[in-house]
Amino acid sequence: MKDAALELKHVHFSVNGLHILKDITGVIPKGKITTLVGPSGAGKSTLFKLCNGLQTASSGDIYIKNKRIGSYEPTELRRLVGIALQEATMLSGSVMKNIAVPLTLQGKQMEKEEAAHLLEIVGLDQGFLNRDASDLSGGQRQRLSIARTLVNRPQTLLLDEITSSLDKVSQQDIEKLIVKINQEFGTTIIWITHNLEQAMSIGDYTWVMMDGELVETGPSDLLNNPSDARVKRFVKGEIE
C-alpha cells in the first residue's frame, strides 16, 4: 500500500508457548494519528515492541515503506520508529543525561540550549536539567520520556500510555503537543491509551485489540458504534 507508514501481515507472536499476538493484519496510514485501545493484557505494548524491533514476530511480517523491518539495521529501525515505553524508564543520573541519551549513543553531544528547548516543548522548566531523573514524579517522567523519544526525529512515533499519570490539564497539553508534531512534521503517530474519549478526540483512526487479536479498525468514531460484540462490551466498560 502506497501511503502506509506501517503494514502488518499475519503477525503472530508467541513466548514460552503463550500465544500473545494472533494473526494481526492491518495498515497504519502515513502522517495520521492512529489510536490503539483494548483491555489490559490485550497485547498492545507487545505489538509496539515488534514494530520498534525490540522483539521479532514468530511468523508474519511487518513492512515499513514496503521493506520488511528485518531488512533494516536494528539501530536504524529504532531511530526511524521511535517508542516512548509504557514505564517511562529513566537511567540513573541527571535529566540532562537522560534527554541526551539518543545523541550520546551516537557519540554526539547535546547542547544545553537544545535540551532546554526540548524540555520546554513538553512543558518542563529548564531548571529541571540538573535534577536527578529518579526524583521526578510519574507525570514529569512521562514528559521527559516523550522529549527523549523526539531527539531521534522518528518518522513514526509509538506512544505507550504517555498521559496515564497526568492530570486533565497536562493531558491536554501533551495531546496538543502530539497533534502539533503530527501536523508540523507529518510524523505518523500510534498512541496506546486506556482513555476512550482521548482515543476518539485525538485519533484519525482507531485499532481495537482484544486477547491478542485485532478485532476492529476504522475511523476513530467507530468507538461510538462498534460492530463487534466484544468491543461493544469493552466501550461500555464491561471489560477492563
Partner: peptide
Amino acid sequence: QKQTELILSLGGTPKQAIHT
C-alpha cells in the same frame, strides 16, 4: 533490564545497553 531495553529502543547497541 528496563534500562537495557530503553537504550536498545533508542537505537543503542547491545554493548551500549549493557555497559553500565
